[in-house]
Design a binder for these strands. Structure first.
Lengths: 230, 230
DNA sequence: AATATTAAGTGTAAAAAACACACTTCTAAA
DNA sequence: TTTAGAAGTGTGTTTTTTACACTTAATATT
């Protein structure tokens, strides 16, 4: 039996909640579920779950995400821990928020509970339970900052993408129009994409070239002091 | 009596640990304490404590900081939550790290336990208990980023300071030499300091003018879209 | 009273980065 | 063969960043 060195203190329930961002090729979206238990049954909510004794928070977040969407190997980053005493009307719960980035187009959702889940435009988020709107706001701000200094945007795109899609993605994240020529020039200057001999023909007669993010090239450049900046 | 909706879930001990930064006019320092209980008794450690039922994490961090240093109204910011299953060799504990910024010179430490506490140069941090070195590394990186986009550096300085002190502070935080003229020009361009009709005579015969951070001017500029950038 | 000492204070030119801006090219469909 | 529509591309201007060294002010020394 384990010794308890610390005097008995109050224990708390520790939850994880996931802000799941997706990009459908046009707009940045957020996956929300209709909560099917009390309290706050039938209100929209982030997906969440509780930390178990044998896992850390990163693992708990990945487990919760997989359980509810079927997705694994998804980009997940811890955001902030929310702890107001009455934040959960059920009982004292502290929640660690994570945000996830997934590419909507290339994932088939196994949709275990996708009857109760829905993608919302990030600019049209409904009222959520507890402090979940605050978590979403924090996640959007974090994503905005992070996407400008780390190549995490590619997590939201298919493996192969056009320059137009990449620009639309950044426009969605930063919530502002970007100039096509300046954007292309900047991306080309970064020199971390591989241009494929392959075109996407769905959007124009001419077709537009597809690109891939070159993770190896990026890592090597980082080792030599390069820093990604959009 | 409160209903327990989630009662089958595991509970955990939730700790806060504080990374306390100070600036002595020359170098950036960190306050560490020698731990006086098991496990890991007599090793250097961050100060910490446990979350209580009637407070949130920000309050817990402030309480812990005040209990151990006597300081209140200190800049505190949540950093990250650490949760590896065996991070604490005593029992399963999840810890939320906070970092604090204090001005060493102008605070008289009541020093309740300052016999067991010591300021360390941030570049010479000893081996700490558990994952505290990881927390410190995270805090330094966060401070470095934050100090470039928010005027939090002033939290580490006395109310009145010279341009030289401000420059030395940024050099410590960013861990690189800055050019005096470029630095002065940049700070003047930001236009958020008030230049006092008062000099610090301790460092030179000529004396150097003292400045104050003008919080009101800064807030007004932020409202008009200004963003602080060093 | 003159001189020496020491940090404080100050400006400009060059390079790099950010920005504004519009026409040509390619291909499929008509 | 013509048309239609998105893809693709370059330059000049402005702003920001960087590199760089002498003068000034006040005290201390002679």
């Amino acid at each position: 039996m384990m010794l308890h060195y610390y005097e008995k203190e109050d224990q708390v329930l520790l939850a994880v909640d996931c802000i799941i961002f997706g990009f459908d090729g046009k707009k940045l979206k957020l996956l929300l579920v209709k909560r099917n238990f009390e309290p706050e049954k039938d209100k929209w909510s982030l997906i969440g779950g509780f930390l178990k004794k044998n896992e850390n928070l990163d693992e708990a977040a990945a487990r919760v995400l997989k359980a509810l969407t079927g997705l694994k190997e998804v980009y997940l980053e811890q955001l902030h821990t929310y702890s107001n005493v009455n934040r959960d009307s059920g009982q004292r719960t502290v929640s660690v928020a994570y945000y996830a980035l997934i590419d909507i187009a290339s994932h088939q959702f196994e949709g275990i509970l996708l009857d109760t889940a829905k993608w919302f435009d990030v600019k049209l988020i409904p009222d959520l339970i507890f402090d979940h709107n605050q978590m979403v706001d924090g996640a959007i701000r974090r994503l905005r900052r992070r996407a400008q200094t780390k190549p995490i945007g590619f997590e939201l795109l298919p493996n192969k993408f056009t320059m137009k899609q990449l620009q639309l993605l950044y426009e969605s994240i930063l919530d502002k129009k970007l100039d096509k020529r300046n954007f292309t020039n900047k991306i080309n200057t970064l020199d971390v994409l591989e241009k494929l001999n392959e075109k996407d023909m769905t959007e124009s007669k001419k077709g537009s070239f597809l690109f891939k993010f070159d993770q190896i090239k990026y890592s090597n450049k980082v080792k030599e002091g390069f820093s990604f900046k959009i």
